[in-house]
Write a protein that binds this DNA or RNA. Structure first.
Lengths: 237, 237
DNA sequence: TAAGGTAGGTGTACGCCGTACACCTGTCAA
DNA sequence: TTGACAGGTGTACGGCGTACACCTACCTTA
């Protein structure tokens, strides 16, 4: 019987199983409690066993990133570049919301992983159906991490989610009065938006709205440049 | 004599001296080799001595961030919101280029430090001279980390600078042919821009140009919204 | 069927990390 | 003179990534 249990749990390790377990562990317990030792324990195995499947922890993180990027929907073919780009980016965003730790992981690594390169290459291909190579180049820079479905929010609620513990359903705490007094303009801003709506609870931001606002600001500006045949002419400093 | 040396090096520790030494160490050796132990050694002191001046390593990092943010030029008063914002953001960018590690440090922490809040509050104040509170709110989100002078470049050379070792003056390596073959659109893009200029070496991007391109794309779009009296009207999903 | 190579899990150990806690020491106020 | 206190010290603990030697079950091939 003991060896039956052994056999059951001993679905043999594999790189894929290691990566998926790592992603699951990071999703549940937060990236900061993803250690080789914890991960090994989760897999019922001794820490050094992992090194037969990943070279080291950095390579593990790269693999995890590729797993996440692999979840992004493939681009729909044939449509206009603008809605195509927009849709795929919003899909990427949904994926990143499921794996909040991945944002930091992607930023912290140099991220020239094959999966990311493939993703970006497809994105460029779509852009190039409407834009010059020149403009497409600058657009890729301008969109930056938004291409991967996230942007740097200055106070990022999702940053803390998946950091430790699972979903904490607490609404964002309102700004304490002494803070509001010291930073009055921030305080005014904090409650300024999304109140023409009927049922907005508290002063939480509609993150999805904010993301699409910035995305469309960029996409509309890009479209305008494209329509007027923009070319980069480095102003002489 | 021995005690003279003692006295010389024993400029008494202080929170300020600790923070400045930490910033210098991160600048020179990279953030990943900033440990409490290394920092203590740099200061000629035993590791635990640091804890009389900073609560723990996270608080040390917060303090380092505040030192960096304190280097950003104060806003020039009286000018129009658009050039004021633009100028201050470009100043912030120069600061962050001097302390490349700070980008990751800022992203990794929740960054509600007093210095950052003060910086952002001043930024909002400037915005509010021309924009509604509603629009200013969304603008702050849209600009995201660009407000602090950086954006997420997908292949960020400055990310690796200051990571280990000092400045490496190597130009970015050209894309290896087998990579270019697998990702043809990226390859085309990589060499597409900044070649109408006379003397651009290799295919290195002009990072400053790219940053300003995106910044102006956003600022121009914002100005257009402002001029047409934009108000957020959440589309009914 | 025997031999031996190989893939993959194990055990031990090292050096690094952050930091809790008890301790010492010099300075200054009462 | 005393004693509180600010600030530097020494030791120790638990956790980390991972090098390295090892064992073991399987598969190939003669």
């Amino acid at each position: 019987m003991a060896e039956q249990v052994e056999t059951l749990r001993r679905t043999p390790l594999s790189r894929d199983r290691v990566l998926r377990a790592a992603v699951a562990l990071a999703d549940e317990a937060g990236i900061e409690s993803l250690s080789m030792r914890n991960l090994a324990q989760e897999l019922g195995v001794v820490p050094m066993a992992l090194y037969k499947h990943v070279a080291n922890k950095d390579e593990l993180l790269d693999g995890m990133i590729d797993v996440v990027v692999g979840e992004i929907d493939p681009p729909v073919a044939g449509a206009d570049w603008k809605p195509t780009i927009r849709g795929r980016i919003l899909s990427a965003r949904q994926v990143l919301l499921r794996h909040p730790w991945a944002v930091l992981a992607i930023e912290a690594r140099n991220m020239a992983t094959p999966a990311i390169l493939a993703y970006l290459d497809a994105m460029v291909a779509t852009l190039r159906t409407g834009l010059s190579a020149d403009l497409a180049h600058h657009v890729m820079h301008a969109m930056g991490s938004r291409m991967l479905g996230f942007s740097q929010e200055l106070f990022d609620a999702s940053r803390n989610a998946g950091r430790s513990g699972a979903t904490d359903p607490e609404p964002p705490a309102p700004m304490p009065p002494e803070v509001a007094a010291r930073f009055p303009h921030l305080a005014e801003i904090a409650t300024a938006a999304s109140h023409d709506d009927e049922s907005v609870v508290g002063q939480g931001c509609d993150d999805q709205f904010e993301f699409e606002f910035a995305l469309d600001l960029l996409l509309d500006g890009i479209e305008r440049l494209q329509q007027q045949g923009w070319r980069s002419s480095h102003r002489p400093r």
